Simulated assay, not measured.
Amino acid sequence: MTEGHQPRLDPILEGAHARAIGRPKDACPYPAGSSERRAWFEGYDGAPADDGPDLPMDAGR
């Protein structure tokens, strides 16, 4: 590792941290369409990107 280079954290943790310190959602450092960008947004939003809304308990009846 070169001096001054800091390894990146897990993108999910980075996104959660960004939200916690008040950074805007458009501050994501990863390129559009990348798996890292999706993970960063999952952390920022606090939910997996492919996780749909919860259904009522009786929805399957």
Rank of each mutant, 00 (worst) to 15 (best):
G43P: 00
T2N: 09
A18N: 03
P29D: 08
K25W: 02
P11S: 05
L13K: 12
S35K: 13
P56E: 14
P11I: 05
P48N: 06
H5W: 12
A39M: 03
W40R: 01
A47M: 06
A20F: 07
P24Q: 12
D26K: 10
A16I: 00
G4I: 08
H17Y: 11
L13P: 00
A47L: 04
A20V: 04
G46Y: 03
P11Q: 02
I12H: 07
P56A: 12
R19G: 00
I21W: 03
M57L: 14
C28Q: 02
I12Q: 06
P24W: 06
L55A: 14
D50C: 00
A27C: 12
Y30V: 01
G52I: 02
P31L: 13
L55H: 12
G33Y: 08
L9H: 09
G52F: 07
G43N: 05
A16K: 08
E36S: 13
G22S: 05
D26G: 06
G33W: 08
L9D: 12
A20Y: 09
A27N: 08
P29H: 10
E14L: 02
G46P: 04
R38M: 02
E36R: 08
D10R: 05
P29I: 07
M57K: 15
S35M: 10
A59F: 11
P53W: 11
P11T: 06
G60K: 11
Y44H: 06
C28W: 03
S34A: 12
E42S: 06
A47Q: 05
A59G: 04
P29F: 11
D54L: 15
C28L: 04
D51K: 13
A27G: 10
D10S: 07
A20W: 05
L55Y: 12
D51P: 00
G4S: 14
A32M: 06
G52H: 13
M57A: 15
P24S: 14
D54I: 09
P56Y: 12
I21Q: 07
W40V: 03
R38N: 07
G4F: 09
T2C: 09
P11K: 05
E14T: 06
R38W: 01
D54Q: 15
L13F: 04
R23T: 03
A49V: 02
A20E: 08
L55W: 13
I21T: 14
Y44N: 00
Y44F: 11
T2E: 13
D26Y: 09
R61M: 10
T2R: 11
F41D: 03
G52P: 07
G43R: 05
C28A: 13
R61N: 11
C28M: 09
G43I: 09
K25R: 15
G33H: 13
F41R: 09
A20S: 10
A32E: 14
